[in-house]
Nucleic acid binder design. Structure first.
Lengths: 195, 195
DNA sequence: CTTTGAATTGAACGCACGTTCAGATAAACC
DNA sequence: GGTTTATCTGAACGTGCGTTCAATTCAAAG
């Protein structure tokens, strides 16, 4: 199950990643032991060190992978033409992507303080890239007179917080479908930045 | 410094509370030891047990106190007349109150999973009371035709997430004053729920 | 100055932690 | 079937944890 040779895996075993992700999201990085993760996978604690050099790197790999997936998925997304269409694409994409992986989202937002300085900087860099994508849409829309946002950075932060907030209350099988939620949030977002 | 008699304090020593709040916010509940807290206060670890029966209760007391302060402060707030004025009061109050106590806010949002079931329920109950205050404003405004929110619960969640998000990026002495931030967010909030 | 009770220390308890590693096992290849 | 290489176990290491408690210090009252 582990890798062939020498240096430790970039590609932490998928079972280990899945177990760690679930447990970190549920109980928090500091409260989860390597023995618990190993138990979920069905091995002894020592075996985990075939997949990761240490616990902190395991966390970092989860976060980095999540952020890279996010950037790649947004890059591959159909964005349409014009600021309004692009904002709608962003809103719907953000909600959909985040609802699809609640554990990774939770970890990426809550466990930043458990990262070393250099690992923290790496994750923040990826996050900034994503935020810049939204800010760019807002800036272009503002210049084109489609939006009325006095401060694009604040508007970007406000929108991201609003959209990511869905993850705190959404439960599978609730009274609203994802499509309806995306529609309602798109409506609020559109109005919030309207001229 | 500790209390007189018998049962452990409702009123955990203020020095202990302050140190615990700072450390829990900075490093997370699970990552902070009683010895670290004691060190900040300037006593040995054992002395903390004059102020709290255990570590978890110390966390719970911090959260409960924060939520009770929040409800009391909103209760004492000048709210004005009519849905629009009340929404503005809420937006400005929420941002101001939360920016004033970033550590307590951080803990109240991030450490819920470290609470026992019964303590969790207590905190959630207080949070619900606060959220209900905002939802009520939205519902009345919707009925009066001042707002255009198809789902007041969703709109409430969206607004709260947006407003609380300020805490994630605001830094003392940044380029925008609190007043300006409140103004910009009030503008976005007003438009987001507009008819 | 002496008494008294609260406040605090400092050592100890049993336990769980992250990590290491020699040895056992299993799988792949000849 | 035998050899090699990947995979995993199980025990051990030193450390720090939350919590307890007898003994000590301290502060106020008489």
């Amino acid at each position: 199950m582990a890798r062939k040779t020498g240096s430790h895996s970039q590609i932490t075993g998928p079972k280990v990643r899945a177990a760690a992700s679930r447990l970190f999201a549920r109980h928090g990085f500091a409260a989860v032991s390597m023995r618990q993760i190993a138990g979920e996978v069905g091995v002894q604690a020592g075996a985990l060190y075939l997949y990761t050099p240490d616990k902190q790197t395991l966390l970092f790999d989860l976060m980095r992978e999540h952020m890279e997936d996010l950037l790649a998925a947004w890059g591959a997304q159909d964005k349409g033409e014009g600021p309004l269409a692009q904002l709608e694409a962003f809103v719907r994409f953000h909600i959909g992507f985040h609802l699809e992986r609640p554990d990774a989202v939770f970890i990426a937002y809550m466990e930043l303080r458990n990262l070393s300085e250099v690992n923290f900087a790496a994750i923040e860099g990826l996050r900034k890239q994503y935020e810049d994508a939204l800010e760019q849409i807002l800036r272009l829309g503002q210049k084109a007179g489609v939006f009325g946002v006095p401060d694009t950075k604040l508007a970007m932060m406000a929108l991201i917080a609003m959209l990511t907030g869905v993850n705190t209350w959404y439960r599978e099988g609730g009274r609203l479908s994802r499509d309806m939620i995306e529609g309602i949030y798109w409506d609020m977002a559109r109005k919030a930045v309207a001229g």
